[in-house]
């Protein structure tokens, strides 16, 4: 275990998603190219410093290249510089641009296509200092209703099916980061951000916060549990049943209390009776607020 941990310092977290490999590959290919360039740079610097070190033959030497305003460099040499720069730029930057745009528009931003898949799971997450509040639509398929399955920092998803997350925050800017799925998305209060992923391996994976959000930023941990489809459906059913029961008890309790004003917005209040009422109607594509 210890050896695994030590090695883990130098490798990326396990990739349990269908599309995380795209990011990993881009990083690794770029790493190889830039690593090679960095090594070449250092080698050239060391070579030049040794090969052409000053050997004390001071005094008159033939002037090198141009003088005066233009500085040194024959036209051929300058064209060589431009050529080398362009080649490096096209190779490294070109690969970065083309690959990232293709993956972005083709996969990571293709939320509508993911949502259209049968069996797609929708989750609302409301980040809060220092908890990830998660909400499933429950058996009625609609959010902000009584049968929503609500949890704190405990997200459940089925394996192999697309999961679409709508993300909000009730206080400061947080960032929903699930390393195992290569997901990272800022939760900005007053906005709703959307991302999607497709888990491919069952297991329990961690959620961390990736935008400094206060003194317990480093404790804002959650889990995503990936289960097989049948187990997930059973979990939703059981959760919905519990939610409906609790809602009915709440309604009875409220009937006996004087009416209270509900706080506005999506913030889960400290009052436990309101702690479950923070959901919002599922946003259609393009709606950010």
């Amino acid at each position: 275990m210890a050896r695994l941990s030590a090695a883990a310092a130098l490798i990326m977290p396990v990739d349990a998603s269908a599309d995380g490999w795209r990011i990993d590959r881009l990083i690794h290919v770029t790493g190889l190219m830039t690593g090679g360039l960095a090594a070449l740079l250092v080698a050239l610097l060391v070579f030049a410093a040794i090969r052409w070190r000053d050997r004390g033959a001071a005094g008159a030497r033939a002037p090198v290249g141009g003088q005066g305003n233009g500085g040194r460099g024959s036209r051929r040499a300058i064209l060589a510089v431009v050529g080398v720069t362009t080649a490096i730029f096209l190779a490294v930057d070109g690969n970065l641009m083309v690959t990232s745009m293709r993956d972005l528009y083709g996969v990571f931003l293709a939320v509508s296509a993911a949502e259209a898949e049968p069996g797609a799971v929708r989750i609302e997450i409301n980040a809060q200092q220092w908890v990830w509040n998660a909400r499933h639509a429950g058996q009625d398929g609609a959010f902000a209703t009584d049968d929503d399955v609500v949890s704190a920092s405990d997200v459940r998803v089925p394996v192999g099916r697309p999961v679409i997350v709508q993300l909000a925050s009730s206080d400061v800017v947080h960032s929903f980061y699930v390393p195992a799925f290569r997901v990272k998305l800022d939760a900005v209060p007053g906005r709703i951000a959307t991302a999607w992923f497709r888990p491919t391996r069952a297991g329990e994976y961690e959620i961390a916060c990736a935008q400094f959000c206060g003194v317990h930023h480093h404790l804002m941990r959650g889990t995503v549990t990936v289960m097989d489809g049948a187990a997930f459906d059973r979990w939703i059913a059981a959760g919905s049943r519990d939610a409906r029961r609790i809602a009915a008890e709440d309604a009875r309790a409220r009937a006996e209390e004087p009416t209270r004003e509900r706080p506005a917005g999506v913030a889960p209040a400290d009052d436990p009776a309101d702690a479950r009422r923070w959901g919002w109607p599922w946003r259609r594509r393009g709606q950010q607020r």
Binding site: I27, T30, S100, D103, S175
Partner: peptide
């Protein structure tokens, strides 16, 4: 690059 930045941000 936006996609690499998803992981490294």
């Amino acid at each position: 690059a936006i996609t690499a930045d998803i992981y490294l941000h």
